[in-house]
Write a protein that binds this DNA or RNA. Sequence first.
DNA 1: CGAATACTTGAAATAAATCAAATAAGGTGG
DNA 2: CCACCTTATTTGATTTATTTCAAGTATTCG
Lengths: 259, 259
Amino acid sequence: MYGSTQVLEASHSPGADDLLAAYARLGEAPRQMNANCSLCSLRALCFASCLGEDELPRLERVVSQWRMIHRGDYLFRVGDKFHSLYTLRSGSFKTVAGHEDGLEHVSDFILPGETLGLGAIGSGQYDCDAIALEDSAVCIIPFASLESLCHDVRSVQHHLNQTLSREIVRSSRQMVLLSGMTAERRVASFLVDFSRRLLERGYAARSFTLRMTREEIGSYLGIKLETVSRTFSRFQREGLMRVDGKQIEIFDPEALAQI
Amino acid sequence: MYGSTQVLEASHSPGADDLLAAYARLGEAPRQMNANCSLCSLRALCFASCLGEDELPRLERVVSQWRMIHRGDYLFRVGDKFHSLYTLRSGSFKTVAGHEDGLEHVSDFILPGETLGLGAIGSGQYDCDAIALEDSAVCIIPFASLESLCHDVRSVQHHLNQTLSREIVRSSRQMVLLSGMTAERRVASFLVDFSRRLLERGYAARSFTLRMTREEIGSYLGIKLETVSRTFSRFQREGLMRVDGKQIEIFDPEALAQI
DNA sequence: CGAATACTTGAAATAAATCAAATAAGGTGG
DNA sequence: CCACCTTATTTGATTTATTTCAAGTATTCG
């Protein structure tokens, strides 16, 4: 778009990603296709980040396939046998954790560069549903191969450990939010956090589209959709942000962060 | 006590553990002492579980030290530089996650065989406080050494991955609880879960002592201490359990699980 | 374009928090 | 080892943040 400024709606990289996104939109792409880490714009966020140029081919042998998932489709479901981790290349996902009695909870929203399936390593079964919030593309990382690569390349093992550990810290933060914050702070926290994650990935942090519904945000934050809506409206009245359906503009991130 | 039935208050193993517990009570023990995985009764729960008899000495070189922590003392604090994971040998801990503005949350209770410090791997700093709920003993696992052992012994790496992943799943379950359950279900869920964990460790599951206060339970469950107390009283009135201060007896685990 | 889904807003209901006060348990120093 | 002070727990009365119910409006997507 304009030089280095990229927004979520725009294709976020030239080359292979564009092709993939275009295929996904058309719904005509082969279900899987070959990956190429060297050309990937998200290299810095995934396992490639800990490898030298010369080691990338080894990763490419592990992450040899892509897959496209259409909006609303499942990448995996609770209980599915675990074979692979997935790194999101484009699009976005929600993960939904269930409970015996139908109680459901949106446990996370996933942005490009983030990894899906970490909870399945321990049990051999995926522990949540992963559902695409828009047409998306994922790299397939067969876990057995990744473990072998870990064995050969220490930095990859280190990276996997770090990824898992960071996920634990993230959960822990979310629990502080769920256990003690007012609805207002939860919503503010969600907006600030989401904005920060977009920024880290090179997207516009002040103006973005929420791909998820108010109900999904509410579930993620442990409040009802009406409360999300009311709080958005209040923040708008107070001049902190502009809300136009799913289109959000943040005017005063500092004030939001301090709520 | 009676054959194979062991209760939390009793020493849970003969030999080294007893010695350690005795030292801890006296407060006269050396601050650190040598570990011996081969003799440890918790072997089945920790990293030793994935090693053969012949490989144990390698683990013992990594986990070469114990440490005793008195009730109320910190094993580590938020922000401390990360060097080691800790496996609890005896006693119990709480972990407390903080937030900039003083908002605190008891993120977990730790029982023997469980690991402390997993959240520090990613950032190099501990992400929570770990505070002993009673005089306790921990094995010190220097992380650099553990990573080396992971490199040499695949099963150790696999075990670390599994431990980290299981922690993610645990957090995720706790978030479902915190985001959607009534106070009554949270308390029931806590009791059932705590009882199950005791059972898995060979302690009495129907009758046990809560080492933490009502306030700490409330923080863990995202409710106030008065609500914990009232719910305990209600469950007692309904004949599901007996409450005598910190001493708990579960009469009807099935009914509790179904609440 | 039109049915279905998503969102906003108001009013009433409620689960849990807060405030308060009395009782019980636990740890410490004399 | 007991008395005392502190901390923890229970229980009741009141308040409140959020949910629930409801109804109208806007969006989305096939």
